[in-house]
Design a protein around this nucleic acid. Structure first.
Length: 229
DNA sequence: GACCAGGCACATC
DNA sequence: GATGTGCATGGT
């Protein structure tokens, strides 16, 4: 909740502005659905450039399949994904994820992703190390179902423009978008990717509002910091 | 050298 | 239920 007294975001107009400015993003940047899901775990609280190095190493080691990755001892895996940060934590999380694919779905990711979206989301959330954002990224970008992903960038730009008051729940923030948009996975895909493009370029921890494509809706307050959002 | 990055689990109150 | 903290690397 916490939504009383704040202005709702112009969801469709913001999308048009971002799409006009940045163009199509064609996410997720991965070669396979399994690689996408591995990347979703690796990018937790981590810059994507560091994730790319870890993914490249996994590809070089030829372990970007559920079975191959599952066969790598966690300590070895941690060494390979070092550049992505918190390697012991993420090695454990990757292991929990591949264990689910192996044991609940016989190693078939395609089978795992066939479940209804809500059921898939629940299953993913039950895996150690997969929270709401990671689960929704997987459901949207790997299973291609229309769930809206809420991440730090989403909350930041909403807050900066006065479209988010208090500390609304994850589901409340997602509802701001899903209520205003058709349930279209391709649209949600593009929208989230555009929000990240915005976050990486203008709406950063140290904002650069000069040429921000959302400038017509006002500027970020000077000195606004991420931890206050 | 401080701050940040496409979170999450866990402890504590 | 809300809040604080550890995880850890590489870029700015």
């Amino acid at each position: 909740m916490g939504q009383r007294g704040h202005v709702k975001p112009p969801v469709r107009a913001v999308y048009r502005a971002l799409h006009r400015h940045f163009g199509p993003q064609r996410w997720w940047p991965a070669r396979t659905r399994f690689e996408m899901m591995v990347g979703a775990i690796l990018t937790q609280n981590t810059a994507w450039t560091n994730v790319e190095r870890a993914i490249a190493e996994l590809r070089r080691r030829r372990v970007l399949t559920p079975r191959a990755l599952h066969d790598v001892p966690p300590a070895t895996l941690a060494g390979w994904i070092r550049p992505a940060g918190t390697p012991t934590v993420k090695a454990r999380r990757l292991r929990a994820f591949t264990t689910w694919v192996m044991e609940a779905h016989g190693g078939s990711l395609a089978r795992a992703l066939r479940a209804p979206a809500a059921e898939l989301r629940r299953a993913l959330l039950s895996i150690h190390g997969i929270g709401p954002e990671t689960a929704d990224c997987m459901v949207l970008y790997a299973a291609r179902r229309p769930v809206f992903v809420v991440d730090a960038y989403t909350r930041r730009f909403l807050h900066r423009h006065g479209w988010l008051a208090g500390a609304p729940s994850y589901d409340d923030v997602a509802a701001l978008f899903t209520r205003a948009l058709p349930a279209d996975a391709a649209l949600y895909n593009e929208y989230h990717a555009l929000i990240v493009a915005l976050g990486k370029s203008y709406c950063r921890a140290t904002p650069r509002c000069g040429e921000c494509p959302l400038g017509r809706w006002g500027r970020v307050e000077e000195g606004t910091r991420a931890r206050h959002e």
